[in-house]
Design a protein around this nucleic acid. Structure first.
Lengths: 342, 342
DNA sequence: GTGAAAGCGCTAACAA
DNA sequence: TTGTTAGCGCTTTCAC
């Protein structure tokens, strides 16, 4: 059932029917009622393509998920974020298209998205410390919101981010309060800004407590179990072993746990570990450990807020720039304990 | 830059330009070259909406991800699957739109997707044991591929699935071979077909070995850490304790591990646990344990195959029904060991 | 308060 | 080999 059929069926013009359905004021209430009824009965839904062609609005938001290489696993954070955003889009009649972008040909992907008229705006995921995408999108003229921030940017942009720096400062302070001085930071790829900020937070706390920042105790790479395992294994063998680990995701923490077990140590007793994870954490608190909070998925909330921000921006471009900093309330300790060297 | 501008710029008709770009044979090679060059220079990309309006094809595939309730976490499996599928779509010039559907209003979501002309086909995720969606989609006339199978369906449909039944039979057999007779199955929600099939696989092995199937040792619910913990805790206190656990996801296994630890037992020594997970598993093999295989994300491969199947179907509806059964090669033992009762 | 007509950017008969 | 024309389903001036 399309508009033409519906209008013929009603003995009205397409114009009137369209107006009635879209809430234009110049339609009499009686016809509006009639039209709405018939539309519901006939299960009429306006054709999105036609609508978007006529209005010039795509009624679609694009999410571009970067994947470093073909075989990289997709960060489950995106799923939660997208779930939140999609909720908002649905409310406003928008669709959500997903593009997986290998980082190499990102530029052409954004350009093609824009040129194809496929979206009214995009959410930019996984920003690096410095982001060529910002300039690119500005040049193209596509509204966007960054999920995360960009440390080195001289021009304003819309963003929503967790307070990674503060969370890691807190976590580090917690370990210091427990008496630790040799704390290992097993961090994500520090060319990605979230990891960079986490590192800064870690260093903030160390510096404030006049503790030395030892490069040897800091590692940065893709957050995999293997990375956690290998790094922790090596660190547990060194002469200057850490007494505590700060893990930048629960996946990496699994590896750390494995290494600790293999070294014949007990987590939470011989070695302390604090895990930070903004995603819904699958870990419950084992009991004896401090834990900041553990709400369900603040990432989903971030998705909701980002989508909202983007739609507002599209609606009214003068609302610029917007941004929101969420407290990273999922920072939690899986296991902490007295400082002790292996 | 749109077709009109491009054609004017070239002094050709829109038709010719369109034909040249779309590879129609009746265009002379020389003009085709010229057109292609100009298009590349002008950074011309055909407007998807217009194209789809003109052809009646949406050039878009929809993925509908069901989420049981608002606060449910999104299964990370979807992210991997979608990543695989998106790869295929890109190759064929298709877009991918994502819809998160609360299970309550699924029907209206599918109907509205179809009526809006937004997609040429859909991938159906998380099929239940019996699926009203199949009939619905058939009625609507929307091509679809089910990611998973439906046990109770009397009409054919396209599907791609992992061999869950076989995997669980194997895993169970492995435990039986190690001497276990009281094996607990911590399974997903058995109204979902994947969980149902896993249970059948478990029962297959038990029956073949003439072992009793004890209802008390089988649990079924959403695969959360908490579910694993609570169920395992309870089971470890009963008079008729299991000596082994078969966990239907690594998340649930984390809970089981916690319960085992709290009971003062050692995993892999006092109690055996086998984890099945089709997603990329974050666990490495701890060493002493049998492990079927551990390739990276067979789920992504499933996504690729499903997308391929759907596009083929759209292209040629006579290719019906298609299906593929993938061996669930990520079944792996995190820890198995001698049978012993707590 | 309602309708006729043009047009969004493309494709696809049909003509030439 | 190329061009003319109509039309996909909607919105939106403009006229009544």
């Amino acid at each position: 059932m399309n508009l033409k059929q519906l209008s013929e069926h009603l003995g009205l013009s397409q114009t009137t029917v369209s107006r009635a359905l879209n809430g234009y004021p110049e339609v009499s209430e009686s016809t509006r009622k009639r039209v709405q009824l018939a539309a519901a009965e006939g299960n009429y839904r306006p054709n999105l393509r036609a609508m978007s062609l006529a209005t010039g609005k795509a009624m679609t938001i694009g999410h571009v998920i970067p994947v470093a290489d073909q075989h990289d696993v997709v960060n489950p954070i995106f799923a939660e974020f997208v779930a939140g955003a999609s909720q908002v889009y649905k409310q406003h009649g928008y669709e959500l298209t997903l593009t997986i972008a290998e980082t190499r040909n990102e530029e052409s992907i954004y350009r093609s998205i824009a040129a194809r008229g496929a979206v009214d705006g995009v959410i930019v995921h996984s920003p690096k410390r410095t982001e060529p995408r910002l300039a690119l999108l500005r040049e193209i003229g596509l509204p966007f919101v960054v999920h995360g921030r960009v440390s080195e940017s001289d021009t304003p942009y819309n963003w929503i981010d967790m307070n990674n720096r503060r969370a890691f400062k807190q976590a580090t302070q917690l370990l210091i309060d427990l008496g630790h001085t040799d704390i290992a930071l097993i961090n994500g790829d520090e060319s990605l800004n979230f990891a960079w900020l986490r590192r800064l937070g870690f260093e903030d706390a160390m510096r404030e407590n006049k503790l030395p920042i030892k490069k040897a105790l800091m590692a940065s790479a893709d957050l995999t179990e293997t990375f956690g395992y290998q790094t922790a294994s090596a660190l547990l063998k060194c002469s200057d072993c850490p007494t505590a680990f700060l893990a930048s995701s629960y996946v990496v923490a699994l590896g750390i746990r494995r290494a600790i077990g293999q070294a014949g140590l007990q987590m939470g007793k011989d070695i302390s570990v604090i895990i930070h994870d903004d995603e819904l954490s699958y870990f419950d608190n084992d009991g004896a450990i401090p834990q900041f909070t553990a709400t369900r998925s603040s990432v989903r909330e971030a998705g909701i807020l980002a989508a909202d921000m983007l739609l507002k921006q599209i609606d009214d471009p003068t609302l610029f720039p917007q941004n929101t900093l969420l407290e990273s309330h999922l920072t939690m300790g899986l296991s902490t304990g007295p400082a002790k060297r292996a």
